[in-house]
Design a protein around this nucleic acid. Sequence first.
DNA 1: GGTTGACCTTACCATCATGGGAAGGTCCAT
DNA 2: ATGGACCTTCCCATGATGGTAAGGTCAACC
Lengths: 134, 134
Amino acid sequence: MMNIGEAAAASGVSAKMIRYYEETGLIPPAGRTGSGYRTYGPKEVQVLRFVRRARDLGFPMEKVADLLALWRDRGRASAEVKRLAEDQVAVLAQRIREMEEMKATLEHLVHACAGDERPDCPILADLGGGHCRT
Amino acid sequence: MMNIGEAAAASGVSAKMIRYYEETGLIPPAGRTGSGYRTYGPKEVQVLRFVRRARDLGFPMEKVADLLALWRDRGRASAEVKRLAEDQVAVLAQRIREMEEMKATLEHLVHACAGDERPDCPILADLGGGHCRT
DNA sequence: GGTTGACCTTACCATCATGGGAAGGTCCAT
DNA sequence: ATGGACCTTCCCATGATGGTAAGGTCAACC
């Protein structure tokens, strides 16, 4: 049995976050010693690592909860898990697209900017420009 | 002179955000009518549109403030603007890289998952697995 | 002149996931 | 027994946005 600091080190989840996950119900309340310290065993650490890994893949906490529930459900259909993962792929793809677009626009502007000591700057011109109605 | 609702419509920045930008000092306090309504002219709307556009390119508010300062400074060197833009391109590129990596990992897992009614699922196996000590 | 509805004001709360810190209790090794 | 490293709870902050509630104002219409 480890206390929260060791569990944090073993799982890669900060002690702060472990408490938060417990508070929000993502994970069940940890056991406690007589003096109130939380205790964790290998199973709990594995759960924490699961959460960590899912977060690393960009799943929001709500989806992590869904994944955890499926993980615990031995009668799950893998199709459900796959759907969650596919949804997440779509979310990521969308975000990537948006950022690619921002990046392309910015690169275009950067390319057009002399970048010297003169004040003329197509980047500022673009930001301030567009069309203004009085 | 327009009130905040019209300025919001004209700039694409919500009234809520206009007040917030003013409160945080990103933009100077708007003029007021005798009864306390904020008033905006074409110049203010242009500033708001500048902010909107910069935010659309992913600049955090702090950088938007820097850009605004340069915009107002007629003696600026375009090199400074360019540097801000290049930094932002780098930030975007980094984020894109991270998300591409997540996406690639997930796609790999999705590909390996049968997605049927059976419980066996490489996605969950990966999340829970790695190396677990029981 | 009065009513109505659309607008404005401030002030507070919520998000999402995380970190920071204070004030106080516990554990262990010296 | 003392010190330092740990734990506990509680509150605050982030960044940018939305929501809501209580109350004031304006303009149009009858």
